[in-house]
Amino acid sequence: MEGSQTSQRHLGLLWGAVAASLLLLATRADEFAQTLRGCSFKSFLGLPCPTCGVTRAALELSNLDVASALRINPLATVLMMVLVLGGLVAGVSTFAGHPPREPRWDLRPVERLGLLLVIVANWAYLVANGT
């Protein structure tokens, strides 16, 4: 029981630290992005890969332009916002004595299928949008 509470506290603090680090690194996002190469999948096949636009969406988010980020890659934008905002909430609530609890991870097949469909739908959007 004690170990479980320690784990929850650590998770809250770790997630909070990651979110804070990402906010700090966001100030240097433009410089970091220049060191990255373009997507070879897209340059070779002419189609975006499922993760295309993540860097550009992150750059837009670092400039607080959520709408543009959502247009580039909706799923990645939502996940990045959950990562950062969720991390800040988790960190603060852990300090307040309420560490985050893990959800149930063993999803039913229909739930897993739903998750997969969300990923495929996002990829279809990237292809249609020419991201």
Partner: peptide
């Protein structure tokens, strides 16, 4: 720190997808 957490989250999501948990 950031890479460990994000890679763990991605891998965990993939484990959820394949029913590995």
């Amino acid at each position: 720190l950031v890479a460990l957490f994000i890679w763990s989250a991605l891998l965990h999501l993939c484990l959820v997808l394949v029913g590995g948990l």
